[in-house]
Design a protein around this nucleic acid. Sequence first.
DNA 1: AGGATCTCCGAACAATGGTTCGAGATTCGA
DNA 2: TCGAATCTCGAACCATTGTTCGGAGATCCT
Lengths: 217, 217
Amino acid sequence: MVRDSNLRSTSRPTAVAPRPARARRYDARRDAILRAAARIFRDRGFADTGMRDIAIASDLSPANLYHYFKGKDEILFYCQDRALDRMLAAVAAARRAAVDPDGRLRSVLAAHVLTMLDEVEGATAHLQVEALAPPLRARIVQKRDRYERAVRRLLADGMASGAFVAGDEALLTRAMLGALNWVVTWYRPDGARTPGQIADEMARYLVRGVQPEGVRG
Amino acid sequence: MVRDSNLRSTSRPTAVAPRPARARRYDARRDAILRAAARIFRDRGFADTGMRDIAIASDLSPANLYHYFKGKDEILFYCQDRALDRMLAAVAAARRAAVDPDGRLRSVLAAHVLTMLDEVEGATAHLQVEALAPPLRARIVQKRDRYERAVRRLLADGMASGAFVAGDEALLTRAMLGALNWVVTWYRPDGARTPGQIADEMARYLVRGVQPEGVRG
DNA sequence: AGGATCTCCGAACAATGGTTCGAGATTCGA
DNA sequence: TCGAATCTCGAACCATTGTTCGGAGATCCT
C-alpha cells in the first residue's frame, strides 16, 4: 500500500527498468481487476455484481482483492475515473486537431461510444455515479461535470460561430450524452455493427440535429 | 387475492358504486405502493432499494407489502408495465391523430419523457429490465420490444415517405430512446425547465436529426 | 351480533454480500 | 542464503435484505 502511484513516474526512460518487477506485477494485477470489474459492472450493473464475481473473473480470491483496492467502491471509482480520463483526452485531442466545430464534436462523441464499449476502460463512466459513497462520488462528479462542460463548450462555440443552430446547450448536451451512454444497454458484440460503425453513425446523427440548413455532414 | 383485477371493469357506470369500498381501498393502497416504489427506484435504482424503504415511503409495514404484491420483483414489474402501457397508448394516439410523420414522432418522444418523469407511472420503464427474474422479465421485454418496434416503424414510415432521410432505423431509434431515458438521471424538479419544456425540446432536437434539408419543424 | 374475511404488523429466518482475520506461501534486497 | 515485506487464500464475521410466520385488530355480510 506504499505505492499508490496512479500517475506513472515517466520521468526517466533510462535503460534499466526504473520500475521494480514487483511493482510492475502489482500494477498489472490492479489492471486486470479493473478490467474484469468494468466488464461485469457494464453487463450486470454495480449493485448486482459481487466481490466474489470480480474475484472469480480476475482469478483471485475475494480476500485478495482487498490488497489492491480498499473495497468495492474504490474499484468502481477507478473504473469511472479511467473512462473519464480517456474521454477528456478525446476532447483535448479534438480541440488540438483544428477542424471545424462539426468534426470536433463528432470525434468527441464517437470517442465517447468507443470508451463505453471498450472493455479495458470503465464503461460505467456515468452510469452508476450515484452508487458511490460521498467522498469518492464527489471526485467523480467533479470530473464528470468537467467533461460535460467541455462538450457543452464545443457545442456553444459552434453556435456562436454559426456552425450550429441556437438552442439550449445544456439540454442538447445531455441529450447527446444520454444517447451515447445508452449504447451499453443494447450493444452486443455479435451484433451487425462494429463499435466503430456505431460510434460514427451515432455521432453523425447527433450532430446533424444541431446543424443549420445547407451544411449537412 | 381473489381480486387480481388490474383492468378496471368499466363496463357499467351505474349510479351505485359497482366496486365495493373494500376493493377500492385495496386498489388505492396498491397504487400508493407502486407510486412510492417507482419514485425510489428512479432515484436510487432497483437493487439499492429495500423493501423496508418502500414500506416506509408508503406508510406500511414491510410484511404488509406482501398482501399487495408477491414480492419485490412484482412491484418492479407493475411499475414497468404501467409505464410501457402509457407509452404504447401515446403511440396509438399519435397514429390516430393523422398528422405528418414529423409530428407523430415528436409527440411520441415527448410523451416518453413525460412518462419517465411522472411519479405516478413507472419511470423505471426500460431502466432496470435486467433486474427482473426470467418469468416476469420475459413479459416486460416483450412489451418493451413492441414499443420499440412501434417507434421504429414510425421512423421507417417517415423514411419511406421521404419525410425523413434514410438511415439505420434500429440504431436511430435506440439513439432517440437513449437520450429520452437518460433524462431521469439529470432531471431535477427545481430545475429551470419544466418536464413539458424538456419533452418538447428533446423531441424537436431528436426529430430534426433525421429530417432532410428544407423541412425543419 | 357473530363468524368469516381482510388488513396489518412485530419478530424472526435464511441467504447473500462486503469485509476482516490469521496464517501460510512467495518474492526480494542485502 | 536469510529475514522481511509482500501476496494469497480459506474461513468466518456481521450487517443487510427479501421474505415468512403467527396472531392481533379492523371490516364486512347476514
